[in-house]
Nucleic acid binder design. Structure first.
Length: 579
RNA sequence: GUCCCCGUAGUUCAACGGAUAGAACGAGGGACUUCUAAUCCCUAGAUAGAGGUUCGAUUCCUCUCGGGGGCACCA
């Protein structure tokens, strides 16, 4: 069964074709209020002007046409009110919707259901996210890329897409040169310092990095060290290799703690070393780029308002723009992607516009399928976070604190819970991820501890709690809970609304994929959880005397639980059995 | 200067060009002998401004005013 929106669109399409109207005018929206119906279309309003008839006349035409054809058994009634044609779904629709929801199962998020048509089949999406820098500890700002990227990956997989997740680690460039300089200066003729650094590399290297940045000509020094590294200097290479190794290990630890799905690729920027000279050559021979007097290679985009794009610096070192060009090429060749997405904060939008424009000028394939999924960056109430200024909140600190608070609440509310540690982790992480994902990707987020780690209201734990409550009802039920309504049941308005809310999830997921906005799913799940809370507060379920009614309520609870768990899974949030 | 993103209740955020602009937090009031009160119910409260397009604009266009970011041979 297709989604109700598709169903109604199809019905309208055949009317439009019969009448010779432009099907592009068709628009189906959920009704703002169930008293109108379940879905509505404003097509009568749009056509009225074109056909020079009143909306009422047009609507009558459409409704008559639909009624003159065999009745669609998923539609119960069609009505017209204040310009809108309203559709109400039939009990058969609800019956089948229920089965579709239960068939999918709660934990089946990444598996395509057999035989089901999925729009993602045969399409590969390359997702670039969680791009950590070498030898730096991730802070809360890094959370956004990780969480948004991971959610998009889960959502895409659920629709049958193949996803290649790549961290694209920042392991190359001048910043790395600065780190090399700082390290070498510290250990010069000082064996003990080497051990000290190796014992606690992340803290020590960060300190050294901050100190080195205070030197006036640090930029030149860093560039020199990086140029040496790039030209193959053996000492720099071996230090670099060690730093990359420990950093990748750290990255894996962080990814595991965040419970991110695994990455298919860890191709850092350094992986594109060999491809870069060829691109420079191509750019020069095609006349896209030119060499400046001091030996740099640049593409002049000033006429397009994109300034000058530098591929190679005058000291011969490459830029990350050049590496990103090589990355597009590599990904297109190796994965033949349908989309190539970069989940990176919006401070880099200018950079990506340059990358895509230069790639276009070079005639690269896959440019139009490449997109910067920009997000607003996370800042503190007092301003931007900066490693160099030292005012960062480390990711681990936030996770630790979230867990600690979750544990405190569990001791207060449910002291007998047997797996406190596990659940505290699930709740803490759920709160943080949900906080991040609930914001529109494009807005900046101000990090307030109280908001980010809240467990009440529109939060991850609210949905987790709702889910746990529903699961508890199912556990305590003495009835056999099937996957269908009892024979002859007639659903009431509340029951229909709750089920429709579940059945609409695929429509929301489609919208998430269309605009790469996971918060739409977050909102939908929150609203569903709200309805569910309201529902079980007003309907005693286990004590309902009428067996048919009781079984109906139970099977609806099962559908809602399944939908919520599955939705949380798609956001990368666990749904504990009890909390 | 120029380019991009954002201006919605006191605060943090929603609203696929659609019907009466929704929530959450905070504020005030209420509901646990009853499936977990991390919950539920009630009350108050908002589209920065001016034009335009449209049957219909928070949404699209133009300008103004505010906030953030980019315009590095940093990544």
């Amino acid at each position: 069964m297709s989604s109700p929106k598709e169903l109604i669109t199809t019905i309208l399409s055949s009317v439009f074709e019969r009448c010779g109207w432009d099907v592009a005018l068709i628009d189906v929206v959920p009704s703002p209020d169930t008293r109108f119906g379940d879905y509505a279309t404003p097509v009568a309003l749009k056509l009225a002007k074109i056909l020079e008839k009143s909306p009422q006349e047009v609507a009558t035409l459409i409704i008559e046409d639909i009624k003159s054809n065999p009745k669609n058994e998923y539609i119960d009634s069609i009505s017209f009110e204040s310009g809108f044609i309203n559709f109400r779904m039939s009990d058969l629709f609800y019956k089948e919707a229920l089965q579709a929801i239960l068939k999918e199962g709660p934990r089946n998020g990444v598996k395509a259901t057999e035989g089901e048509e999925q729009e993602g089949r045969g399409k590969t999406v390359v997702l670039d996210y969680f791009q950590l820098n070498i030898a730096k500890q991730p802070h809360v700002g890094h959370l956004r890329s990780a969480v948004i990227g991971d959610a998009l990956k889960r959502i895409l997989l659920s629709r049958g897409y193949r996803v290649v997740a790549d961290t694209h680690v920042g392991d190359w460039g001048t910043q790395f040169g600065i780190l090399l300089y700082a390290y070498k200066k510290a250990v010069q003729g000082n064996e003990r310092e080497i051990d000290a650094i190796k014992n606690d590399p992340f803290i020590k290297l960060q300190e050294l990095y901050v100190i080195a940045n205070q030197e006036e000509d640090i930029h030149e020094k860093g560039k020199m060290e990086f140029a040496k590294l790039e030209k193959g200097d053996s000492e720099n290479r071996s230090i670099w290799k060690w730093m990359v190794e420990i950093s990748m290990k750290k990255l894996e630890d962080n990814a595991a703690r965040l419970k991110l799905l695994s990455f298919e690729e860890h191709r850092g920027e350094s992986a594109y070393e060999e491809a870069m000279p060829l691109i420079v050559e191509l750019a020069l021979t095609r006349g896209v780029a030119k060499k400046t007097e001091d030996g740099a290679v640049v593409v002049d985009l000033t006429k397009e308002g994109l300034d000058e794009a530098v591929l190679v610096k005058s000291d011969g070192a490459t830029t990350y723009l050049l590496r990103d060009l090589a990355t597009i090429q590599y990904r297109k060749v190796h994965y033949d992607f349908w989309k190539n997405l970069y989940v990176v904060d919006n401070r880099q939008s200018h950079h990506f516009r340059q990358v895509f424009r230069v790639a276009e000028l070079l005639g690269f394939e896959g440019v139009e399928a490449s997109e910067h999924i920009e997000f607003g960056f996370m800042k503190l109430p007092e301003g931007a976070m900066s490693t160099r200024k030292g005012n960062v909140i480390l990711l681990t600190a936030v996770l630790d604190e979230a867990e600690r608070r979750a544990r405190a609440v569990i001791y207060e509310k449910n002291p007998n819970l047997h797996n406190v540690d596990e659940v505290a982790k699930q709740i803490g992480l759920g709160a943080i991820k949900f906080f991040d994902l609930s914001h529109n990707r494009k807005s900046d987020i101000v990090f307030h501890w109280e908001d980010a780690l809240s467990f009440e209201g529109k939060t991850g734990p609210y949905i987790q709690y709702t889910c746990a409550r529903l699961k508890s009802i199912l556990r305590k039920s003495a009835d056999e809970i099937g996957d269908a309504f009892p024979e002859g049941v007639v659903l009431d308005a509340e029951e229909r609304e709750l089920l429709l809310h579940c059945a609409r999830i695929p429509e929301t997921i489609q919208r998430v994929i269309d605009a790469w906005l996971p918060h739409l799913l977050v909102d939908h799940l929150f609203e569903l959880a709200q309805s569910a809370n309201e529902f079980y507060h007003s309907h005693p379920i286990l004590t309902e005397h009428d067996e048919g009614k009781r079984k109906t309520l139970l099977v609806i609870v099962r559908a809602v639980t399944t939908t919520l768990s599955r939705g949380l899974y798609l956001l990368g949030i666990d749904a504990p059995e009890e909390m």
